[in-house]
Amino acid sequence: MSRGKSGRPTRPSGEAFWWALFSAGGVMAAIFVPAFILATGFLLPSGDPAAAAEGAQRLAALAGWWPVKLVLLGVITLSLFHCAHRIRHTLMDLGMRNLAGFLKLPCYGGALAGTVWLALVLWGI
């Protein structure tokens, strides 16, 4: 791609779209994900079978409520795209610039697969 002189029409790229998802996902991840980790990584798990069963009950009750489903869908999906974009650019910054186009496939494709999987999971709760 050559650098055009002023006025030369150039093709805007789809990077804007991925960046918008990255940016929105960054906000979502920053605000919600630490609390998610506290909840599902520390508060709900337990070595005691009775406590774990109670935790499962709480989680099922929460995740079964549609407003929570919507929040989970929004936060997790956007956060996945945030990670995908950042991982892609980190790999580019680390020297994989020539693979910039190819990297879109595993990165954004992975995030998309995660989104579909999550939607199916939430649908089934």
Partner: peptide, 15 residues
């Protein structure tokens, strides 16, 4: 101006 800035790495290369 954005026409130029929207090109693939022109601005989006910034991390």
């Amino acid at each position: 101006r954005l026409e130029v800035m929207l090109r693939s790495e022109a601005m989006w290369g910034c991390t």
